[in-house]
Amino acid sequence: MTNKVKIVEIEKADFKNPVLIEGLPDVGLVGTIATSFIVDSLGLREIAYVDSPLIPPAVQLKHDRIIEPVTIYGNEKVVVLTSFVELPLILLRSIVSEVLDWITKYKPSLMLSIGGIGDPRRIDLEKIGVVGITIDQKIRELIKEVPDVNILNEGVLSGPKAIVIREANKRRLPFLILLSQAFPNYPDPGAAAAVIDVINRLLKLEIDVKPLLEKADEIKVSLRELMKKTISAVAPTQSIRGAPTYIG
């Protein structure tokens, strides 16, 4: 079966140097939880969806609409790529590649990729740390102004976000990866809230994470099947080697 993917536009996009936020399922489903919450909080519209024969067969019914599993939402400034199904690494690469080709024509100002980094000490953490990865000097200066984000200068990153970095770098897109310390194998709304806090300060947004934390238990129960499937699909979970002091 081919792993060819295509972007199907639902409505004509009208972006002006948008920020692309990618949050496909990975460690602790941090990206999935955070991007879904951002979509709801900002009232973003469905702009397009990703189609491929390899995407698990699932659709979401929402009143009179059908939501595709891998959907792109947006307004003129923020574009969000999210998924409610697990995506194997081989498919993830094709999806990221196709979405970046598609967004490039709108000259994005930033590719922001969010997710989790599994931390066995997560149960001890009252304050969740966020690590930032970028090679762009301007973004590096910008992120310095946001407290509580540790910039990773050296180390080896493996897992889904390594794919994102490689694909963004090929296209010379300015990118920033934000990873929060998360329970490796459980949905982690607390870690998602920590990433949203950073995005708020970085993009001057005012997304209130309180409702997310209040619904944390419901979110965790609802997402446990996706969590199990994501663990199987993304076997080499996100990890950073050679830089243990940057987190925590």
Partner: peptide, 8 residues
């Protein structure tokens, strides 16, 4: 070490 997720 066994961890078990028990939300709620």
């Amino acid at each position: 070490i066994v961890t078990i997720d028990l939300p709620g």
